[in-house]
């Protein structure tokens, strides 16, 4: 029982990080209808900048630089490439971001080589005790940051002019533009936010207990895909919940590896995808996604 609670809580904290990255995914999708496969390499870019910069400028400024770099890269992807073929179908746009991901990830992993870069977080490998459960300090912080950011997003979406513009554009871009809402600006903002969220996600995904920034960190963002699909692509709340579910599922299956050994080794990595497939069988548009009317 105690082990279960420990794993569950650990899963929630990991899930919080996924939620952040997934939230970025959904924000971009809602605002511009793009499945952004480049999210992974943007995440890597953020983490890479932080890891390279922290020794010379200090951790706090390094984080700011990393977030900025990721946000700028993200906006550029939209403004330079996506915007040119804005009305192409989802698949085409998704594959375009895949191409960008390959370019960015190749260059970054070339720079990193076989090194493992230290992210330089001041909390290092500290462990905190929360209600009798020992959790890595970085994960607790991640949970806190995620909670603050998700709440901030929710408030901003709900109450600010920007939030209203964003939601209007997401619901009906054409009418939003008839109301004077500048869609390109909304798009740029959404991409910037997604980049920033990816960088923050990258920071925590490469902090302890993870070893550091390696060339393959971008692949970690793949774990958020089941989260996004689970939640339903156009639902920010769904993305957050999906992230938490995926975190818990992967930590639990990894933790109970021995008991689940009949399902094979390394279950933690694949369980989220299995859960995603099962959910899609029952609900083809995820848990909270918008469904279509026709039946054929």
């Amino acid at each position: 029982m105690n082990q279960f609670v420990t794993l569950f809580v650990g899963g929630l904290f990991l899930g919080a990080i996924y939620s952040l990255v997934a939230l970025g995914f959904v924000t971009v999708f809602k605002a511009t209808h793009v499945i952004n496969f480049a999210q992974g390499s943007v995440l890597l870019l953020g983490a890479y900048v932080i890891a390279r910069a922290h020794e010379s400028v200090g951790f706090a400024l390094a984080v700011a630089l990393g977030v900025l770099a990721a946000a700028v890269a993200s906006v550029l992807i939209d403004a330079v490439l996506i915007r040119r073929i804005r009305r192409a179908d989802l698949g085409t746009l998704a594959i375009l971001t895949l191409g960008v991901d390959i370019l960015l990830a190749t260059e970054l992993s070339r720079r990193i080589g076989t090194d493992v870069l230290n992210i330089g977080a001041p909390w290092g490998s500290d462990v905190t005790e929360v209600a009798g459960i020992r959790v890595a300090t970085s994960r607790v912080l991640a949970g806190g940051v995620a909670a603050v950011l998700v709440a901030g997003f929710w408030l901003a979406f709900k109450f600010t002019d920007f939030g209203i513009a964003m939601r209007s554009a997401a619901e009906d871009g054409e009418v939003a533009s008839l109301m004077g809402i500048r869609l390109n600006r909304v798009a740029a903002t959404a991409w910037a936010l997604a980049g920033a969220l990816a960088a923050i996600g990258g920071l925590f995904l490469t902090s302890f207990p993870a070893a550091g920034v390696t060339g393959s960190v971008g692949l970690l963002a793949l774990a958020t895909i089941p989260a996004v699909v689970l939640g339903g692509f156009d639902s920010p709340g769904g993305a957050v919940l999906g992230g938490l579910i995926i975190g818990v599922v992967s930590v639990l299956t990894a933790g109970y590896q021995e008991e689940l050994s009949f399902l094979g080794r390394g279950l933690g990595g694949v369980a989220p995808f299995a859960v995603m497939l099962l959910v899609l069988l029952v609900r083809p548009s995820g848990l909270f996604g918008t469904r279509e009317v026709t039946r054929v």
Binding site: G91, V229, L263, G264, G266, G269, L280, G289
Partner: peptide, 30 residues
Amino acid sequence: SPIAGRVRGIYLGLASLGLVFLGQHIFQNA
């Protein structure tokens, strides 16, 4: 195909992604 028949467009692309990971798991363990 039960999934392919029900799930559309991009959801299908991402669902099929799950199959690759599931496959990796099976091939590593069988």
